[in-house]
């Protein structure tokens, strides 16, 4: 299939970006990133600069890939990362617009590569259980209800890609933060630090310049791991409980 790509090019964080148009021949078995590989090989053959994009596992788990495809973070297919999107979902003659995940808390490094270290700092603010190596009791000392463990897992499945931020009109990081807060709040091990954790993480989210949540639910719709917005409601409850208790 013959495709036209309009891709965001930006030399460095300060540069003014622009769209550049390419045509590329793809086949339906390729993944979206393999289609970019093919394009980049062509650019290299012409001694032109290849398009920079983040990627690593290409299995939908590392959270590195990050493209907005035709206006949607990770493209048109629900529950799918960019690397797992295959070209059979496109057709000959399509025009595809590809941009980076945009947010002021995710500055562009180059082309489609953005800096998401703000997510790391949210975790550093409290996304952990304080237990030093060697201090743990036996793994079976505290039984955990199967369903609770399952719900904690569902939240913990977040890959930290940032699509929720890119999808949100306010560039809010609520879904990402709520997923981590909920994962730990649902488990007995997470109880002790429950209140300080949610306060510190929400606070850090604000410091990083992420926007407020206005309940558009665009995050859930574009989250490749289908993390539910119910976790945002849960985090809000956790947060207010913590703030009230703290006062």
């Amino acid at each position: 299939m013959k495709l036209t790509l309009k891709v965001w090019r930006q030399a460095d964080p300060q540069a003014k970006g622009r769209f550049e148009t390419f045509s590329v021949n793809a086949n339906e078995h390729m993944s979206f990133l393999e289609m970019f590989d093919v394009l980049n090989e062509e650019l290299l053959a012409e001694k032109k600069e290849p398009i920079a994009f983040d990627h690593d596992c290409r299995e939908g788990i590392c959270g590195a890939c990050s493209m907005v495809i035709n206006g949607q973070a990770h493209g048109p297919l629900g529950g799918t990362t960019t690397c797992q999107l295959h070209m059979r979902h496109f057709k000959d003659g399509d025009i595809i617009v590809v941009e980076p995940f945009r947010a002021s808390a995710f500055p562009v490094i180059k082309d489609l590569v953005v800096d998401r270290s703000s997510f790391d700092r949210i975790i550093q603010a409290g996304g952990f259980i304080s237990v030093n190596t060697g201090q743990a009791p036996d793994g079976n000392a505290i039984p955990v209800e199967r369903d609770k463990a399952g719900a904690a897992f569902d939240a913990a499945a977040c890959i930290g890609c940032g699509a929720c931020v890119a999808a949100c009109p306010n560039a809010s990081a609520m879904l990402f933060t709520a997923a981590k807060v909920s994962h730990l709040a649902l488990l007995p091990q997470g109880q002790i630090e429950r209140k300080t954790r949610v306060k510190n993480m929400v606070n850090q989210m604000d410091i990083e310049g992420f926007g407020k949540c206005s309940n558009t639910y665009a995050c859930e719709a574009e989250c490749p791991k289908e993390i539910s917005v119910d976790y945002i409601a849960r985090m809000n409850r956790e947060y207010f409980a913590a703030v009230i208790a703290g006062e």
């Binding site: 259980i129 793994g139 505290i142 199967r146 463990a149 904690a152 997470g190």
Partner: peptide
């Protein structure tokens, strides 16, 4: 296993 459970790793149960 003990350490990971204490950290909140949601193992199958």
């Amino acid at each position: 296993i003990d350490q990971c459970v204490a950290q909140g790793v949601p193992f199958a149960r």
